[in-house]
């Protein structure tokens, strides 16, 4: 089937992020969903190229096929059509058991090695702002084969070292000393992978699994590699850029706005005219 890509005026950044995230999912994978845009992205994948993906909601739904978009992972809509409805013990056990292929996560700050902070801005002991805390972010990131972060791109968020490592990237701290080591050295038999992509409002970034360093993969329409490097506080590797992020297709936009999120809870429609 030929893909009919939408023109720039037909979609917004949230649409682009959602579709880019959706394309990270392969069919038949077990995917962990958090509240918000990730949920829309996964359900979009479920309704397009990955009809057999197994959707896990952290609050306790296994292999969910919600006919309608849940408002959060505790929502009654989550378990409609699911293989099993249970609780957190199930959700985290299957993650630790190594059954999760992919998790979608978010963050306030990310560093060059994919460490993510959702706990506080500034010094943990005297924070400028206390944020939500970890939630399941480190747990999914510890156990899933791949994790994808969806983030707003601002220079203050792409930093050399996050204020607090909430969620483990490729180069993490070995306690009690706090020296940085490759995560492979810490996780033993639980090592299965780590962050594989950051999808920001500027571009798509990936990681070199050996060095653990982030590099720019694709730029969103209208953004250049140099410009994106300027939007990071660390020296972003732009030597491997692979063109522009593919825009949403008209079919994807239709599913997002007519089927999944007609009320624009997570993804606003582009205003016409």
């Amino acid at each position: 089937m030929e893909r009919e890509y939408a023109k720039p005026e037909e979609y917004g950044l949230a649409d682009l992020l959602c579709c880019a995230a959706s394309r990270e999912v392969a069919d038949n994978e077990v995917v962990f969903a958090g509240t918000g845009l990730p949920m829309v992205a996964i359900m979009l994948a479920q309704k397009t190229h990955a009809p057999n993906l197994k959707l896990i909601f952290e609050a306790g739904t296994l292999d969910g096929r919600p006919p309608e978009l849940p408002t959060s992972v505790g929502d009654a809509r989550c378990e409609m059509g699911a293989s099993r409805s249970s609780g957190l013990y199930d959700a985290f056990s299957i993650a630790q058991r190594g059954m999760v292929d992919l998790g979608f996560l978010g963050g306030a700050e990310v560093d060059e090695y994919g460490n993510v902070n959702t706990t506080c801005i500034g010094d943990y002991l005297a924070p400028e702002l206390r944020l939500t805390g970890s939630g399941g972010n480190p747990d999914i990131n510890s156990f899933a084969r791949r994790t994808v972060f969806i983030m707003v791109h601002e220079k203050r968020r792409f930093v050399p070292n996050v204020s607090y490592i909430t969620s483990p990237g490729w180069r993490v701290k070995k306690w009690p000393g706090g020296d940085f080591v490759h995560r492979r050295e810490l996780y033993g038999s639980a090592y299965r992978g780590g962050p594989t992509a950051v999808i920001s409002t500027a571009g798509v970034f990936r990681f070199d699994e050996q060095s653990g360093r982030m590099y720019l993969d694709t730029c969103h329409a209208g953004k250049g590699p140099e410009e994106i490097r300027e939007m990071c506080q660390f020296d972003l590797d732009i030597s491997r850029v692979n063109g522009e992020t593919k825009p949403p297709t008209r079919e994807e936009l239709r599913i997002i706005h007519e089927v999944l999120d007609p009320d624009e809870i997570f993804i606003p429609k582009v205003k016409k005219g």
Binding site: Y89, F92, Q96, T119, Y124, L125, S134, P138, D139, S142, F143, Y164, I165, T166, S167, P168, V172, K173, K174, W175, P176, G178, V181, R183, L186, Y187, G188, A190
Partner: peptide, 26 residues
């Protein structure tokens, strides 16, 4: 909680290794 509910003194896991959750200063 699962440990407490089964009368165990503690739980064992491999989650969150390498994060500041395990920073002894914190």
């Amino acid at each position: 909680f699962a440990a407490a509910s089964s009368g165990a003194a503690y739980a064992v896991t491999q989650t969150s290794l390498g994060t500041d959750i395990h920073n002894p200063e914190y």
